[in-house]
Nucleic acid binder design. Structure first.
Lengths: 182, 182
DNA sequence: CGATAAGTGGACGTTGTGTCCACTTATGTT
DNA sequence: AACATAAGTGGACACAACGTCCACTTATCG
């Protein structure tokens, strides 16, 4: 990797982050980003084939931090607590993540492409492991239903259209977590 | 409404249904539909501003039939059964609906527009009523999490990518329904 | 049989996409 | 220090789909 390529990569990400926050991800065109980054269209497309891949790249570091805490952090998020509590803590952390980066996450994951990100695979494996630990008969069929409430559009709908607070959403999900692993 | 307008409306719906089934909803353009229906672009746009509204119209009758059964049908789908069982039956019926019309429903509900359809409002009210009947403390915050697994893209992912059968999905959702209302 | 309002259709301008290729520049080799 | 070369760059371009607009047609009613 050439040094200027790396520099441009950073400029693209920084510009995209700013634009997403300012205008909302769906309203930002690839041209907007390339212009704001001071980079040509071709250069932009070289690394990021579409808007989603940019948003994914932006979210990556935040998600990685949470993944680390899930694997090695303190209970109840990390290992040690009972499955239901860990699931509730996971929900709470995800709500926090969605809240902090809603504008990113919203434009990022359009339709089924959401499931194909590395992060989704990680959440999936985590929840599946918790269900298994709770001795659930069919963890595979319950994983997606339990992750579905964390879909960005569901979250945004609850928050913006139904007027729910993050705290209310967290409480409800904690309730769900305990019930389902109980 | 003029007779020819009604005739064209039918032709558009029939053409769209065929195209959606044949090529998958996202790959069908408005032009495709208008040409297949033997109708001009302007005529198409007059009644249906976008692809989603066409798919919604197509789904409407099927959804209405289910709505009728929820309100006045036999238990456990209709009134009479305990809330947990009614919720499980509702899930089963929705899985059936998704299974039968997946190609329609998939292109129909892109992102947040899903929540704005009349049908979603109906499902929402129904589930909320069941939660209330089950004496839940905060039904409003649990409705969306319980409906989220029925999002078309979640269902399609479970079925096509995870290889789950409709029966497995139904079983898992029944389990969820009983746990959460228990 | 007009009058007229509703309905029709396709041409058109606009916007965003993604590709392509001639040019530039960092890097390491002699 | 000059050169070779492969990686990187940028904007022109062709394309696809969108949604609008308006002159024309036709059903319906008095």
């Amino acid at each position: 990797m050439r040094a200027d390529a790396e520099r441009n990569r950073m400029r693209v990400l920084r510009a995209a982050e700013e634009l997403f926050a300012a205008k909302g991800a769906p309203n930002v065109t690839m041209e907007d980003i390339s212009r704001a980054a001071g980079v040509g269209r071709g250069t932009l497309y070289r690394r990021y084939p579409d808007r989603a891949s940019i948003a994914v790249a932006l979210l990556d570091e935040h998600e990685r931090a949470l993944q680390e805490r899930l694997l090695r952090g303190d209970p109840p998020l990390g290992p040690g607590a009972p499955p239901g509590e860990r699931l509730a803590a996971f929900y709470a952390a995800m709500v926090r993540l969605l809240e902090d980066h809603s504008h990113l996450v919203l434009g990022a994951e359009t339709g089924r492409s959401r499931f194909e990100t590395g992060a989704y695979g990680f959440w999936r494996a985590h929840v599946r492991a918790l269900l298994t630990a709770a001795a659930h008969p069919a963890p595979d069929a319950l994983v997606e239903p339990l992750l579905a409430p964390l879909a960005p559009d569901v979250y945004a709908y609850q928050r913006d259209d139904r007027g729910l607070t993050p705290a209310q959403i967290t409480t409800a999900l904690a309730h769900l977590a305990r019930r389902v692993t109980g």
